[in-house]
Design a protein around this nucleic acid. Structure first.
Lengths: 227, 227
DNA sequence: GGCGAATTTGACTAATGGGTTGAATTTTAA
DNA sequence: TTAAAATTCAACCCATTAGTCAAATTCGCC
């Protein structure tokens, strides 16, 4: 890769990073190109050397983020043959992407401002990912390593919980990626009800018998909070 | 209540409903006051008879939605003395609010555009609600009717899954409020792992033994999808 | 019907911000 | 060293939109 191409790639990355941060805070329409440029010590005009227009920045952000999670979907599928493990790995990677880099945060961005053509492409990729998650849930249920739950609603619940991370996670908070992922997975897989209680959907209306007093509740160390 | 006050209340409600719908689709800054007014066969100027400025509309939307869920928090607390039941009731009500009315959808709205004074009040109410949820989780764990999980992260996961509903739920979809709430609660409480599998956080890295083939996976009927 | 208050209007403004352009500056390669 | 290519910049245009206000209209009530 030539020196110029390298520089260009870094420049594009920096612009996207700045734009995503601003979009998340002020929304797409609430962010001016000057704001994006200022943070990079550039001027608005320079942005147009790298992107055709503002909308293309939003599209690029979405597209990259979706590529990242779709790559994780592929990788998860190639791993161990147990669907529940594949799902676990995928969700862990998804959480990591969401927490670590700026890539994931774009997934929680609004995309109503995209042109119909670009919107179609974004939605198509997003749907591919969601279908992949649902597929793993379904295959896990068929194999017996996961409970038989509604795949669509369960998938939306999982993705919602993860996508929402972008709204509250702060890098300077006490919880890093290594903490969030296992705790979330523990919750997703184990649920809130204790294993001792014979809990089931059918019995959910019945009063559950309290299990023996739990071991000391582990102390909560969690992330910062959005202002 | 006088006839005029009644009319005024209805008018304010209609404006909020229109505004929330528009904000959700185009974002706060992407929504013009004319758009809000047009849908009500009004003109922009009329809106200023009911609201001081655009930001006050956003604030009112948030404030009402928060009052609605805080009322449910109070109600849940007054109910049965088992924290897990209180939590279950609260989450069910929260889901219902989110799915049914336009109120809940305001909870998923951006609030970065609020003035510091109003932002403070919104955040204060939101935090009160989140603390309430965490408190129930913690008390449930102490009592043994819930697993001992990280209260903060578990709370954020639950609220994230529910808040995200505003992004995908469509009233004209096949799933109504009566379906979403029990399925979500089933997932929250029971988790994905089958009861037979001896699953735990510590063992989560171990390969889980597949349980006997599950009963036929129930068919999925779920809501529509955002464009 | 008609009076006064409540409500709506639409034209106006001031400011913002997306997008354009061509010249200036820097970098690259020969 | 130099010319071409790559990159940045500042000034400009123009459409959009939040907010204002005095006039017009409707409404509740006698």
């Amino acid at each position: 890769m030539t020196k110029q191409a390298l520089r260009r790639r870094d420049r594009v990355n920096a612009i996207l990073q700045s734009a995503i941060a601003a979009f998340r805070r002020h929304g797409y329409h609430g962010t001016s190109l000057e704001q994006i440029a200022d943070r990079l010590l550039m001027t608005k005009g320079s942005l147009y050397y790298y992107f055709k227009d503002k909308e293309e920045i939003l599209y690029a952000a979405h597209d990259r983020a979706l590529d990242a999670v779709l790559a994780e979907l592929d990788r998860a599928r190639r791993r161990g043959d147990c669907p529940c493990e594949q799902l676990e790995g995928l969700l862990a990677a998804f959480i990591r992407i969401m927490v670590e880099g700026f890539h994931g945060t774009a997934l929680a961005l609004e995309f109503g401002a995209l042109s119909p053509r670009r919107l179609r492409r974004v939605v198509e990729k997003r749907d591919r990912f969601e279908r992949g998650v649902r597929d793993l849930i379904q295959r896990g249920a068929a194999r017996g390593c996961l409970r038989p739950v509604d795949p669509k609603l369960a998938g939306m619940a999982l993705l919602g919980a993860i996508n929402w991370i972008a709204r509250w996670y702060r890098p300077d908070g006490p919880a890093g990626p290594e903490e969030v992922a296992p705790i979330f997975l523990d919750l997703f897989l184990g649920g809130l009800a204790p294993r001792e209680a014979s809990w089931s959907l059918e019995a959910s209306r019945m009063r559950r018998v309290a299990a023996p007093p739990a071991s000391r509740a582990r102390d909560a160390r969690t992330g910062g909070r959005q202002a």
